[in-house]
Design a protein around this nucleic acid. Structure first.
Length: 582
DNA sequence: ACGCTACCC
């Protein structure tokens, strides 16, 4: 539209609003639009809402579609445009159509119509293995070299599951480079995953130098989020890391899972953007035949406590009757309702409480953490909990690791606080803003991730603004973990631990003589993550705010010592109903 | 003795 960004056309994401009174077209994330619906339930500012990439079925886009359908009943003039891969178009049309029994095979209904846009893709030849392979990394590297020595020019994109695999693959490629004939074209391997610093991500977009071939080892980021020109060959390992949630244990995991057929098709399509291409699937055709048609939507495999809290805040009281594109399993809903009730966000009629429940829904924090923050004034540690909330809601590591593990350890010990990881994080943040003066160099010296620390400052500021809007008085004590202890401040440290217990009582565990933990019901074995202060240390009862399953072990990472009696004190019903404390 | 896939408030 040839206007200045932020004028007629603008965008908005968390921490960044590039719009103005003149803005007519606004690009924003689905999460932010849902947030706008909290204050403007009919989204009355908008006459058209377009939901892009709806076929990806992310948690927030599914929720948004349900909310839009509800709004449409009150605002018939609202236009809704859903963009999706062709396969799913009918599902969306059926969803928005009032009459479930309508026949949409002609692409129309009383509610809308399907408009198709032809992709301009070139054909892609699919190759399967004739026998299953034992080690797909090895097989992938072999395939790369086979392509390189026998195929004409064109870059290679290989789909792997995560950072570690990508780094291994790149080492393996580098190791084999000397085996190429002297006069042969070179191979340039590049990693690509979301956790990679942006500068390093940009390499994959640079034009391939004459006489070389790029090999991009990527995660799922290259399946839909990032498009790279010049790819002619795709190698697909057939796996993706997906979130899974176990409602029995309440533990979310990240597990390598076979891809769906839709996903495999999308990956193959990455080879045919500029000319006809080839896709090598590192599994057999029979294995492909037994893959699921589509990936299970996120809403059916996630912890739904945040989602249900959000729906309640949007005025959707009857979750069972809410129009989900695909309803989540009842067990997930029940588990979420139970937790929200025990946190005090819902009353016995499953209605949102006020002010606790409504405020929890407004804070951009997971419910247990939101509860801690909102109950912090009762414990006299609001300023400290603000910092802890910001630090624990960071994704990724606060510590800069890589190869210098020992130095990282030494640095970590400098900030360590006996009571656990949360007070240690408080310490780190405090040092960053005072001694460190929010400086990148200082972070480097202490093996801290500067980007994460800067983000913690932004999150903390945003949370503080929310609290002030709630009319809460945030007097900044700027106490760090060590400071509260040194200043004879055990009472403050204890308040913080009690406060954490008031939100995380459902994440309690007890240390056994062998150093592992048991959940309260005794059913789950947890291990202290080696990056936790509790690794190789003695403790009795603890709460944890971060849990992850890798391989065959479940690790807890942000861990703080508590006292058994506090659990019953802050969650009497939760523990009375569940089990007797051992 | 271990790391966060992707997205995001």
């Amino acid at each position: 539209m040839r206007c200045q960004l932020g004028q007629e056309v603008g965008y908005s994401i968390r921490f960044e609003d590039v719009t103005s009174a003149a803005t007519k077209i606004k690009f924003l994330t689905d999460g932010l639009l849902l947030r706008e619906a909290l204050v403007d339930p009919l989204l009355s500012r908008y006459s058209v809402v377009m939901v892009d990439e709806a076929h990806e079925r992310s948690l927030s886009s599914d929720v948004l579609l349900g909310v839009l359908k509800k709004i449409k009943k009150r605002r018939p003039e609202l236009r809704i445009v859903v963009s999706s891969a062709t396969l799913n178009a009918e599902d969306f049309l059926r969803f928005f159509s009032n009459r479930e029994d309508e026949d949409h095979t002609d692409g129309s209904s009383s509610e809308g119509s399907i408009i198709s846009i032809e992709g301009r893709a070139f054909p892609v030849d699919i190759h399967y293995l004739s026998e299953p392979c034992e080690d797909y990394l090895e097989r992938a590297v072999k395939t790369i070299f086979d392509i390189h020595t026998s195929e004409p020019e064109g870059d290679i994109l290989i789909f792997l599951t995560g950072r570690e695999e990508i780094e291994t693959a790149i080492e393996m490629i580098a190791d084999r480079l000397p085996s190429l004939p002297q006069n042969s074209n070179q191979l340039l391997p590049y990693p690509l995953y979301a956790g990679l610093p942006v500068e390093q991500q940009m390499y994959v977009f640079e034009p391939t130098p004459e006489g070389t071939r790029k090999v991009i080892c990527a995660t799922n980021i290259a399946e839909a989020s990032v498009t790279i020109d010049g790819i002619v060959f795709v190698i697909d390992c057939g796996f993706v890391k997906l979130r899974a949630y176990n409602p029995q244990t309440g533990i979310e995991t990240l597990t390598a899972t076979p891809v769906s057929k839709a996903s495999a098709t999308q990956r193959a399509g990455r080879a045919g953007r500029t000319k006809p291409g080839k896709c090598y699937r590192l599994y057999t055709e029979a294995a492909h035949g037994s893959l699921e048609e589509a990936t299970v939507p996120e809403i059916q495999r996630s912890n739904l406590a945040p989602t249900i809290l959000q729906l309640k805040a949007l005025g959707i009281d009857n979750i069972a009757r809410f129009d989900f594109l695909t309803p989540p399993p009842a067990e997930l809903i029940i588990r979420a309702l139970e937790l929200l009730y025990s946190l005090g966000a819902l009353d016995t009629y499953a209605k949102l409480t006020s002010p606790l429940g409504t405020r929890m829904a407004e804070l951009a924090l997971e419910p247990m953490l939101a509860k801690c923050l909102l109950s912090a004034p009762d414990f006299g540690c609001l300023s400290e909990m603000l910092t802890i909330a910001a630090m624990t809601s960071l994704q990724g590591n606060v510590w800069f690791s890589h190869d210098e593990k020992r130095k990282e350890e030494t640095s970590r010990r400098k900030f360590a606080v006996e009571e656990g990881d949360h007070l240690t994080l408080l310490n780190v943040y405090h040092a960053f803003v005072t001694k460190g003066k929010k400086d990148a160099k200082w972070c480097q010296q202490h093996y801290l991730n500067f980007k994460s620390m800067t983000r913690a400052v932004s999150i903390r500021n945003q949370l503080r603004r929310y609290l002030e809007r709630f009319g809460m008085n945030v007097s900044e004590s700027l106490a760090s973990g060590n400071d509260v202890l040194k200043a004879g401040g055990r009472p403050v440290a204890e308040s913080i631990r009690r406060c954490l217990t008031s939100g995380y009582f459902a994440h309690a565990a007890r240390m056994m003589p062998d150093g592992t933990f048991r959940t309260v019901d005794g059913g789950t074995v947890l291990h202290a993550h080696p990056s936790s202060l509790m690794f190789n240390r003695k403790a009795d009862w603890v709460i944890f705010t971060e849990v992850m399953e890798t391989g065959d072990k479940i690790f807890v990472r942000d861990v703080t010592k508590i006292e058994r009696g506090w659990l019953v004190e802050y969650a009497p019903e939760y523990y009375r109903l569940r089990t007797q404390l051992a």
